[in-house]
């Protein structure tokens, strides 16, 4: 890697098929499984009414609420998740595996379970909620509860992504920065986070996407009131009862947002990875 000797280009399989041809069958089936529902959704959109449907009072209120709550929960995810990931990646203490497992559990938990947990922790009669109520703080049925639910389900995405990147990157550069006189904060911001930037961005985007799609925990924990707690997914679920066209129209909005988000996160990460590979070859 650090040699100046001319390196022969690594042999590649460019232009030659490197995977068994039959792999295309399950691959296409898998792609179809994901693509067909999205197409199915698009075919049901009443295009003539689409603008009206997505700009109805209820739809606009839901979109505005989702934008607001996702912005807050994403900010919280970064503020809380980055320190958490750094601690998990850099500290060694007894029982750390247990802590990590618990913290990442919401990744696999059904959101409704998360909602129940939040209810019994922060709800009126919950562990902390009871004390908060005594202090006059009541988050039940407020937008705060929505943000809390979204943060709960989204936080592990960032922690998972960032912690893995931090572990893979190791502490070599941090040691170098320290001997160059950089304190822990400078090292963290100028060296560590810069090195894992793609993972941080991808993790944040995925967390935001997860927060945007949050349904179960919000429903269980926060309730559903237009403009206060009824985010886009809840509005879609509700509209399905009354006006399937409106539900489909809003769904399409979410699909578009999802596509943009994935393109940004995945595309960005891939670009960085390619740049690294390229620079690795040249040095």
């Amino acid at each position: 890697m650090t040699s100046t000797m001319p390196t022969a280009p690594a042999p590649t399989l460019e232009g030659t098929p490197f995977a068994p041809r039959w792999l295309a069958v399950p691959a296409i089936a898998g792609a179809a499984l994901i693509v067909l529902p999205l197409i199915g959704l698009a075919t049901r959109v009443e295009w003539a009414q689409f603008p009206a449907l997505v700009t109805s009072d209820a739809a606009l209120a839901a979109l505005a609420l989702s934008a607001r709550t996702v912005a807050w929960s994403t900010a919280l995810v970064v503020i809380l998740g980055v320190p958490l990931a750094v601690m998990l990646a850099r500290l060694e203490f007894r029982g750390m595996d247990v802590v990590r497992t618990v913290i990442l559990a919401p990744l696999v938990l059904p959101p409704v379970v998360g909602g129940l947990g939040l209810l019994y922790a922060f709800g009126r009669t919950g562990l902390i909620g009871e004390r908060l109520t005594l202090l006059g703080i009541d988050i039940a049925f407020t937008t705060t509860a929505v943000v809390l639910a979204q943060t709960f389900v989204a936080l592990p995405f960032l922690v998972f992504s960032l912690e893995g990147a931090l572990r893979a990157d190791g502490t070599r550069f941090e040691a170098v920065a320290a001997t160059l006189g950089a304190g822990p904060w400078t090292t963290l911001t100028r060296v560590t986070l810069r090195r894992v930037w793609p993972a941080l961005v991808a993790g944040t985007v995925l967390a935001a996407a997860r927060a945007l799609g949050e349904f179960g925990a919000t429903l269980t924990f926060a309730g559903s009131l237009q403009g206060v707690t009824r985010t886009v997914p809840l509005e879609i679920y509700l509209q399905r009862e009354a006006d399937a066209d409106a539900a489909v129209a809003l769904s399409l909005v979410l699909v578009v947002v999802a596509l943009v988000v994935v393109a940004l996160a995945y595309g960005g990460a891939t670009r960085v990875a390619r740049a690294r590979v390229a620079s690795g070859r040249s040095s």
């Binding site: 650090t2 070599r172 550069f173 040691a175 170098v176 001997t179 060296v191 810069r194 090195r195 930037w197």
Partner: peptide, 14 residues
């Protein structure tokens, strides 16, 4: 005291 390691460990992205 500054340590120069055998790997230059330059900061990428700078």
């Amino acid at each position: 005291v500054t340590l120069l390691t055998q790997d230059p460990s330059l900061f990428a992205g700078m």
